[in-house]
Each structure stands twice: as C-alpha cells, then as structure tokens.
C-alpha cells in the first residue's frame, strides 16, 4: 500500500527543478543534468501511473525506454559539448555566439 500523492508532488517538483536548472544555469553540462531530472520526473510519473492501471506493463516499459533514450542523449550531447569546447574554449552558451541574425 503506497500513497500516490507524495509521488506526484515529487515528480512535479523534480520537473520544475529540472526546468529551472535548464533556464538558469549557464553551463551546458549542468543543463544536461537538468534535462536528466526532467526525464526522471516523467519516469516517476510513469511508474506511479502504472500502479494505478495495473492491467498492463505500459508505464514501466516506457520508463525503461526513457532510460535507454536518456543514455543515448547524454552520449551524443556530451560529444557535441566537447567539440564546442574544443572550438570555443568555453562551455557557457552565452559566449558561443558566432551565429547571429
């Protein structure tokens, strides 16, 4: 017997914190961490909702795939970030402004 309410609050707060990190932090790697938090918030949701609809395994399965996708995203993302470091010697997105309108 578990209560759903605190878990819902947890996922909402995790998502909001992740969003705040994405908006506030000026470092691509930390932004990546924020994105991971947002993905994990969805995972909490998926697992909790799976408990509410126990007839199938959909939620848990989805959560598994989200983890796989997160891995891929991180790998590619870090590779991209590293290359930008090489070119710009900085990881602050604001400093990277070769492209302008």
């Amino acid at each position: 017997m578990i209560e759903a309410l605190p878990l819902h609050i947890l996922s909402a707060f995790l998502f909001a914190t992740g969003l705040a990190i994405v908006i506030i932090k000026r470092n691509a790697i930390v932004v990546l961490m924020g994105i991971e938090l947002m993905l994990n918030a969805s995972n909490v949701n998926l697992i909790v909702f799976n408990r509410m609809h126990p007839s199938t395994f959909d939620g848990q399965m989805f959560a598994l795939f989200v983890i796989i996708v997160a891995v891929c995203e991180t790998a590619v993302g870090l590779a991209i970030i590293l290359r930008v470091y090489r070119f710009y010697k900085t990881s602050v997105p604001d400093h990277i402004q070769e492209l302008k309108g």
Partner: peptide, 27 residues
C-alpha cells in the same frame, strides 16, 4: 558545432517536456 549544440539543448528540453505530457496522458 554551435548550431548542433543549440539544437541538442533545445531539442532535449522539448522532448523532456513532451515526455512529461505523455506520462500525464498515460495517467
């Protein structure tokens, strides 16, 4: 590489937001 970094950051956030929406729809 700058374009691809911006694409990556923006795209990942967008897909994370979308995923949260999906989880709510599933709920």
């Amino acid at each position: 590489s700058e374009g691809s970094l911006k694409y990556f950051l923006f795209g990942s956030v967008a897909s994370a937001i979308m995923l949260y929406g999906f989880s709510l729809l599933y709920g």
